[in-house]
Design a binder for these strands. Sequence first.
DNA 1: CAAAAATTTGACCAGTTGGTAAACGATTGC
DNA 2: GCAATCGTTTACCAACTGGTCAAATTTTTG
Lengths: 203, 203
Amino acid sequence: MPDDAPKKPSRIQLKNRKKILDAALEVFSSHGFRGATLDQIAEAAGLSKPNLLYYFDGKEDIHRTLLNGLLDVWLAPLKEMDPSGDPLEELMGYIHRKLEMSWEMPRESRLFAGEVIQGAPRMEADLQSGLKPLFDAKCDVIRGWADAGLLAPVNPAHLLMSIWAVTQHYADFEAQVGVLTGPAPRAEARAHVDKMFRSLLSP
Amino acid sequence: MPDDAPKKPSRIQLKNRKKILDAALEVFSSHGFRGATLDQIAEAAGLSKPNLLYYFDGKEDIHRTLLNGLLDVWLAPLKEMDPSGDPLEELMGYIHRKLEMSWEMPRESRLFAGEVIQGAPRMEADLQSGLKPLFDAKCDVIRGWADAGLLAPVNPAHLLMSIWAVTQHYADFEAQVGVLTGPAPRAEARAHVDKMFRSLLSP
DNA sequence: CAAAAATTTGACCAGTTGGTAAACGATTGC
DNA sequence: GCAATCGTTTACCAACTGGTCAAATTTTTG
């Protein structure tokens, strides 16, 4: 018999865990792990601090849960890239989906970025087990496309990293983008990114 | 008579301030402002904590001094871009210099990135006064080149941001790059970045 | 060298922070 | 209806952190 009984969570547990994770996303993404305090998260969640710790084992637990759930969301667009589709349009579709995510989920992007910048101390395992295999698989797909002459010859790994760099930049460096461009850079960004990668990838 | 006598710093002051700033760069860049402690910085600098505070007014003072000095270094390559040179080669030269900086000065890059990700709370003024004017000026230069047909038509602001995004990615996301690519991605990165921007910019 | 100035240190402090214990309320299953 | 479980709060603490201060030590200067 398994000694870790799953004990299906009650409605109230589901609701409060969700509230906590949402509050934690807000706070962690704008102050970093160390910069965030349980009091801040508790207040943002509308709960008391000891109440937080009734639902999670501690600050690290909240953070880890958040990052873990995030990785799936974050990689979903890449998973959708279809090896049997039209190469250029599959890649451009991925790029636009990723760019859209940066506008729609900047907190998630910054949480991720902050963690990686600091050496991913609480995420190394997830990167190895979650990100690496998918990354390698998609690199193979892209290499296949390029070898078949359906794309310009390109280094798949560095292509993917460039895509992440450019698209996530709009979320992660929002403070800088805001200072440097007008209030509505979204359409311009879309056009620019489209042109940049299309010119690189067109065979 | 000016009441804030400059009082030229002694050899010992110069040396220790340098040691402190170097230690602070190490610690701040890998733990963020809030995550860094004065004790950590003091230990890395080989000084006692009260001794740190003899040279700087406090944690914020150290951080601000660091960021302030950094912005100049960071923008130097952009300043070097010569409006009267060959457009494509000036831009590609800038790109390669910026990429080189990411490999040579990853701590500086991460310090900057961490600050901007968290909304640049201690840097807004510097961005407005130091970065914005240079950015606008160089955008005008690039626009001029493009209008003259010496470059492919391109959005100057988003071009510059793309350059930053791609080049700094190798420093800021080093932990991720390390997991995903082999141990020597430097030459590959160079080739990829060159190809990407050359294909975008060639008229 | 001796006085003055600069530098360094040890002891200390007040505020913050992650986390705990136990009592108190609310739900739920029977 | 009522006991048992679940959920919440109050009061609290030990560790850490940024910062102070006066004394001690070293360096510079006349």
